[in-house]
Design a binder for these strands. Structure first.
Lengths: 202, 202
DNA sequence: CACTTTAGCTTACAACTGTTCGCTCATTCT
DNA sequence: AGAATGAGCGAACAGTTGTAAGCTAAAGTG
């Protein structure tokens, strides 16, 4: 096995170990370098061959989580083309992600208000990708100032995110309720915004 | 000084020490019993005379934070009577609380998605007080099913809370923008909900 | 082939953690 | 007055943490 290949492999082992240790009861901040190294099957000191410290690993995790989220978005767009219902499809796709990758979503959720400004910034950037893309869509569908499209997109993303957070602590039989509640809320926003000096395009 | 009096005094010293150590860079989970005891001016072991463990202290902090928040609500209601503008007054009052007691707000914000189910539950309950009260108000002002009033109240509280979170990382000159953005979002919700099969009362 | 590079290891250290034990001694109760 | 209570203390324990120093051995390089 090539050197670089092997290095990448244990790097992934570290990342996977970190992800797998995240849970409802264990946040990234409560992971220890030694524990992660142990699960990755390397000596504690070998960790430093790959990351300068835990913070660097953490930022990597946030990046990867953001990547997954963006892939999700692409997937949602495909579904929308076949399905038609924009809001419902988006929310359902998102909820599937949250319940299927709860550790990943929890990372973003927690570090969004965590103790590291760098982490908070990284998460905020990932979320802004969502917001920007949704705002773009809204601008296409309606005639309104950019500022308002952005404010509307932000509200929508927050509400969807929050529904995901609720789902983490709710029993699965409530997912349906959470989804339809969020759909209602987003429709209100859409109608309210459309009524306040904006017109549907076309 | 009476015995009970003195005990209550050092209990407060512990609570105050804990609050004062919370900051943007330090969450409750990263406080140590010893550090808190040190700042409270007692021996580490004396801590146990007042709390079984750090979790018990944490729940006490969440309770106190919730109390402050409810006092704030009462204060907002007084202002509304003199001022008239419900939404604007409520948000401005809330933003003043967030910026003036940022450590307290941060505690709620973080433990809402923290690693302890007990903490998450405690914060959720405090927030539900807000939601229930707002839903009550909405039911009085409009004719609509309880379910929808609650969904609307929840969306509003989430958006206001989120604006507070944004304020924590924003420079003071942006508070005005955050406030007016949130007002816009809440108005959209109100109008959207009113337009969807609901009528203003009276 | 000899030479360099480097991922991973072992050992070691100092700093901190939560918690137990047994003591003191001022307040309270009888 | 005498006994009981209980807040606070110091010493000590076993456990964990991050990280520094220096070695080994395999992969890459000329």
């Amino acid at each position: 096995m090539s050197r670089a290949e092997q290095k990448e492999r244990t790097r992934r082992a570290i990342i996977n170990a970190a992800f797998s240790q995240l849970s409802a009861d264990k946040s990234f901040a409560s992971l220890s370098l030694r524990e992660v190294a142990r699960e990755a099957g390397i000596a504690p000191t070998s960790f430093y061959r790959h990351f300068a410290d835990m913070d660097e690993l953490g930022l990597t995790l946030v990046d990867e989580a953001g990547l997954m989220l963006r892939q999700l978005m692409r997937q949602a767009r495909q579904r929308i083309e076949k399905n038609g219902s924009v809001i419902r499809t988006s929310i359902e796709t998102f909820m599937e992600f949250v319940t299927g990758n709860s550790n990943v979503f929890r990372l973003l959720l927690r570090e969004r208000s965590g103790t590291s400004a760098a982490f908070r910034g990284a998460v905020a950037r990932e979320i802004q990708h969502f917001v920007a893309e949704l705002a773009e869509y809204l601008r296409k569908e309606t005639i309104c100032p950019d500022e308002l499209a952005r404010a509307q997109a932000e509200a929508m993303v927050i509400l969807v995110f929050h529904a995901g957070a609720d789902a983490l602590d709710a029993p699965p039989e409530q997912y349906g309720y959470l989804t339809s509640r969020t759909i209602t809320q987003l429709r209100w926003l859409t109608h309210g915004a459309a009524g306040s000096g904006r017109k549907p395009k076309g």
